[in-house]
Amino acid sequence: MPTETAVEGRVITAHGRHYGVEFADGRVRHCFPRGKKTDAAVGDRVLVRFQGNEEGVIEKRLERKNLLYRSDEMRTKQFAANVDLLLLVVATTPAFSDDLIGRALVAARTAGIEPVIILNKADLVENLSTARARLETYTKAGIQVLELSALNPQQVHAALLERIKGKTALLLGQSGMGKSTLLNALVPDAAAHTQEHSAALDAGKHTTTTTRLYHLPQGGEIIDSPGFQNFGLYHLSDVEIQHGFAEFDPFLGTCKFYNCTHRHEPGCAILTARKQGEISIERHALYERILAENEAQGRY
């Protein structure tokens, strides 16, 4: 029988309609939402009525401050909530995708999340200058870049532990960037937690594709998300996309036409800034691609 009183917990794993919810005593229960609607994401706080010794029913999702999505042509999927800090992992090798970095930064900015780019494998000096040059576009836009080697736990701790303390950070990156090595440096027993929580959810086969939340020994939390190869932004409006580019800020509202799309209109302040080198051609091209994709999907 379910308990009479709902208990607050935090969603730490999610797969379809299956959730791992952690409670104040540290226990994790296998929980399902009431009814057909699936409305929770990793990082959400929820009210749960216990059923038996191991399960529970999610009665209510508590108010969240933000929510991140990933979308493709087929669907939009929410995957992390209540995030304070985005740790976007790239590496000196293999090559990273500027397109994916740009999209993730737009998503973070529209959700009010502070982004930090982590340049991993910085000890591979033969590739370092090339990576730095490619990241210069983002540093000029005010994005901080931290250089480190995930194989050096002391270096990782010095760069990140104080930054994350008291916050919820999302670890995001393409496959092959060293994200798992970085997670293991931050959470030494992450692999053990993964096995334990997967056993609780009876979802062992999803251990490499499931978003999950870990507690850092020094305080703070980190959400690890699977390596991504696409990052659609179909859930965003055209205005939200404009505000997702930090370098657009000084020019928004100063165009000749109030409804300027910043793509072809005469008197566009952003197109003028691009021509004068104040906005990079590559970043503006990404802006145009995102708008075109959303229009093709009939989003607006």
Rank of each mutant, 00 (worst) to 15 (best):
E4L: 11
A6Y: 02
V7L: 14
R10T: 15
H15F: 15
H15V: 14
Y19K: 03
Y19H: 05
A24Y: 02
D25H: 06
G26T: 03
F32I: 15
P33G: 13
G35I: 11
G35Y: 14
R45K: 02
F50N: 03
V57T: 04
R61C: 12
L62Q: 10
S71C: 02
S71P: 00
E73T: 11
R75Y: 08
L88E: 09
A104G: 06
R109C: 01
I113M: 10
P115V: 11
I118L: 15
K121N: 05
T137E: 10
K140T: 12
I143L: 06
Q144G: 00
V145C: 09
E147W: 11
A150G: 09
Q155A: 10
Q155S: 08
A159W: 05
L161K: 11
R163Q: 07
I164D: 09
T168W: 09
Q174V: 04
S175W: 06
M177L: 02
K179L: 05
L182E: 03
N184F: 00
A191N: 10
E196P: 08
G204D: 07
K205I: 10
T209R: 05
R212A: 15
L213N: 12
Q218K: 13
S237P: 14
I241D: 04
Y258Q: 08
Y258I: 00
Y258S: 09
H264M: 13
G267V: 05
S280K: 04
E293W: 04
N294M: 15
G298F: 11
Y300I: 12
